[in-house]
Computed example of a mutant assay.
Amino acid sequence: MKKALHPTEKRPITVVQYIQLFGPKLDPLGKRRNRPLARCPACNEAMHPRGEADPEVDGVFAHKPKSTAYCPLKESAARPYQILPPTNPDLGKAERLRSAFFLHWKHHWKLIRDYAPFADIKEFIALIRHADQQRLWQYRNIQELEVPFIFLVLKDFPPIKSKGKWLRKEWIRFWFDSRVRSVEDLWINTTGDWRIVKAIYAVPRKKDVVPGPAQLKSTEVPPLKLNFLDKVEPAVHPYQESSMKAAFPEELEA
C-alpha cells in the first residue's frame, strides 16, 4: 500500500516521507539502518518499505512476509461484516434509536457521502432495510453516531458512471481495524478507540470479480467525524428526499 501509519504517531506517511524521517535503508557506510517500522492502518502490524531504492518504482509498504496476524486488507476478497442476532436486546432503546435515526437521516446520509462520494440514495435505503432485517438497532451498546460508520463497512462502493461520464472510477471498501471482525466486536473488543480504514481498489479486468489485494491501490485512515449530529441539518437533493419518503412513509410523515 502507498501509505502506512507513522511508527509512533497516528498520522499516515508515504515511503518518501518515511525515508525523509528515518533515512534510507543503508547508512553512508553501507550498513543497514535500525529504522522503526511503519504500521498497518488496519491491523497495526509492522510494515516495511519496498521499492525505495528504485527511482522508477513508486515505493509501497508491505506486511512482513511471514506475518500471520489477521488483517482485512490481506483478504483475497470482500468479507462483509456480519450483523449477528443481538443477545439480550433492548427493544425500548432500539425503537428510540431508530426513531432518532430517521429524525436525523439527512445527517447520516451526508456523512456517508462525505466518506463515499457519489453514493446512491438507493444504496442508503437498502442499508436501512438490511439493518431492519438484521435487527441492528437492538444491539444494547449501539449509539446513533456509530450507525453510518457501520453502514459504510457493510457494503462495497463500486465505480459509478452517469450519462457516459465516470463520477467515480475506483472501487471503495471500508473496514474497521482488525480488532473488529463482526459488528458486535465494535463494543466487545474496543473501548471506543476504533478506527475506520478506507481502501481504494482498481477495478478488476474480469467482470463480476470482486477486487482483492492485487487491486489495492491505496489506503487511508480518515478522521472520524463523530460530531456530525451536532451540525446544522444538511440540504439534500429533492430526488433523494422523495426517495426516502417513498421508501419509509410512516417514519417520515410530514
Score class of each variant (00 low, 15 high):
residue 230 D to H: 14
residue 163 K to T: 03
residue 15 V to E: 03
residue 179 R to Q: 08
residue 213 P to Y: 06
residue 120 D to K: 14
residue 187 W to N: 08
residue 86 P to W: 05
residue 93 K to A: 14
residue 133 Q to P: 04
residue 8 T to I: 10
residue 209 V to H: 09
residue 142 I to W: 07
residue 95 E to M: 10
residue 128 I to M: 06
residue 195 R to C: 07
residue 151 F to N: 02
residue 215 Q to Y: 01
residue 220 E to L: 13
residue 202 A to Y: 02
residue 184 E to T: 08
residue 251 E to Q: 15
residue 97 L to A: 08
residue 227 N to T: 14
residue 99 S to V: 07
residue 220 E to P: 01
residue 21 L to Q: 12
residue 114 D to S: 11
residue 216 L to G: 01
residue 2 K to E: 00
residue 228 F to Y: 15
residue 7 P to E: 10
residue 86 P to N: 08
residue 75 E to Q: 15
residue 47 M to V: 11
residue 32 R to S: 12
residue 226 L to C: 10
residue 105 W to L: 10
residue 141 N to H: 12
residue 235 A to Y: 11
residue 87 T to F: 05
residue 221 V to N: 10
residue 6 H to Q: 06
residue 44 N to E: 15
residue 222 P to D: 09
residue 116 A to I: 04
residue 62 A to E: 01
residue 168 R to W: 01
residue 110 K to R: 15
residue 235 A to S: 15
residue 168 R to N: 00
residue 174 F to L: 06
residue 214 A to H: 05
residue 22 F to S: 08
residue 210 V to G: 01
residue 241 E to H: 13
residue 206 K to P: 00
residue 252 L to W: 02
residue 241 E to A: 14
residue 164 G to W: 03
residue 139 Y to C: 08
residue 195 R to G: 04
residue 168 R to V: 01
residue 133 Q to Y: 10
residue 94 A to L: 11
residue 207 K to Q: 12
residue 168 R to K: 08
residue 141 N to G: 03
residue 111 L to D: 04
residue 238 P to H: 12
residue 66 K to I: 03
residue 152 L to E: 04
residue 57 V to E: 10
residue 183 V to P: 00
residue 200 I to D: 02
residue 125 I to H: 02
residue 109 W to Q: 06
residue 193 D to F: 09
residue 176 F to R: 06
residue 57 V to D: 03
residue 247 A to E: 03
residue 191 T to I: 11
residue 196 I to G: 09
residue 207 K to R: 14
residue 132 D to T: 11
residue 46 A to Q: 11
residue 118 F to H: 14
residue 135 R to N: 15
residue 60 V to L: 05
residue 168 R to M: 00
residue 13 I to P: 00
residue 6 H to N: 07
residue 75 E to T: 10
residue 248 F to Y: 03
residue 218 S to M: 06
residue 140 R to K: 13
residue 129 R to C: 04
residue 188 I to T: 13
residue 246 A to L: 12
residue 250 E to D: 13
residue 222 P to Q: 09
residue 171 W to T: 00
residue 201 Y to N: 00
residue 251 E to G: 01
residue 120 D to Y: 04
residue 121 I to E: 05
residue 208 D to K: 13
residue 236 V to I: 14
residue 207 K to I: 06
residue 144 E to T: 12
residue 216 L to E: 02
residue 143 Q to R: 15
residue 196 I to T: 13
residue 145 L to H: 12
residue 150 I to V: 15
residue 249 P to C: 03
residue 162 S to Y: 11
residue 103 L to Q: 13
residue 115 Y to F: 14
residue 131 A to N: 09
residue 171 W to N: 00
residue 84 L to W: 04
residue 252 L to V: 08
residue 90 D to M: 09
residue 181 R to D: 01
residue 183 V to M: 03
residue 155 K to M: 13
residue 6 H to Y: 05
residue 240 Q to F: 11
residue 113 R to N: 15
residue 54 D to P: 04
residue 85 P to W: 07
residue 197 V to Q: 06
residue 152 L to F: 06
residue 20 Q to V: 05
residue 51 G to I: 00
residue 40 C to S: 07
residue 229 L to D: 08
residue 183 V to Q: 01
residue 62 A to R: 03
residue 67 S to R: 01
residue 79 R to W: 04
residue 117 P to S: 07
residue 14 T to E: 02
residue 38 A to W: 02
residue 92 G to N: 12
residue 159 P to I: 05
residue 107 H to G: 08
residue 226 L to T: 15
residue 125 I to F: 05
residue 26 L to D: 12
residue 122 K to W: 10
residue 170 E to S: 11
residue 206 K to H: 10
residue 156 D to N: 13
residue 39 R to A: 09
residue 203 V to H: 00
residue 89 P to V: 11
residue 1 M to Y: 02
